[in-house]
Amino acid sequence: MLQVKNLNVTLAGATRDISIVKDVSFELDAGRSLGVVGESGSGKSMTALALMGLLPGAIRASGSINLAGQELLALSEQEMCSVRGNKVAMIFQEPMTSLNPVQTIGRQVAEPLILHKGMTRAAARQEAIRLLDRVGIPDAARRLDVYPHQLSGGQRQRVMIAIALSCSPKVLVADEPTTALDVTVQRQILDLLRELVSETRMALIIISHDLGVIGEMVDEMLVMYGGNVVERGQADKVFAQPAHPYTSRLLEAIPRFGMSRSERLKTIPGTMPEIGSEMKSCIFAGRCDLVCADCLQAPPPFVSVDDAHVAACIKAGRVMETVQ
């Protein structure tokens, strides 16, 4: 249903263009979920904003984003606006900044229904109650008239989800939806998103730097590093047998429950190359303990290790063997 091919996100600079996201490709069917992981600055949010047609300033997307037969990158801003109201929706990390602080939540949920679905004010109000009730706002009918600051962080995120659902989107993009929340509230929001996916058959793209969240939520995943996808595959396979050294190191860096205190956490020495740096070698070469002369010749192509499981590494799939 959603096909993204060679999506590039570029910042037009004074002297040269800076490439922020390079050649991202994936497919996603209705009722399925895709996770995007990577450290901060790796291009996760830029990829999400490109899908939504919401890139800021002088940043442009190229390539192809095909949603149910429609090429989104070919649309005018006005046409894209209607797609955003009807087919794709997004929720952000900090709901407070994306909700309007001086408007009641009832109005904010009803607005898109009137605008995009042509509902009457009264019908939109009824539907708003149903949606708020569905996302677990207690006593929804009476809460239509409260303002965002009167709700807890978790409740605000629920309101954002209700607004996103109001247009029955085909794709919901959630950028770090639970990063600002406590574990127990995070759990409720994740459960809610999962229920909504199976109920409405929408596709879910969830972005997080928390591998635990991705690991239990999604069917497929992308691992991003320095603006590139370095690994793509079915989530349980990527977690069970990471094919790219970066993914593998990332998984080893997480403290696990019950881990012995005498065990040291594995780290990845060095830092991610600055975004937009021209790469003549593998982008991970500077930090990779498997690096060899071949890695420095050219950026490695995707190597397939299993059904639809690929990694941009010349030693893909041999990561585990080589380490052992």
């Binding site: 807890s152 962080g153 978790g154 409740q155 406590d182 574990v183 127990t184 509230v185 995070q186 759990r187 409720q188 994740l190 459960d191 999962r194 928390d210 591998l211 635990g212 969240v213 690991g215 239990e216 939520m217 989530a235 349980d236 977690f239 069970a240 998984l251 997480i254 429950f257």
Partner: peptide, 20 residues
Amino acid sequence: AVPHVGVKNRRVARQAPTAL
């Protein structure tokens, strides 16, 4: 409530309590 890698679609035994 702690999310775990590889415990996909786990039903949490106990419903997590509501916000504080």
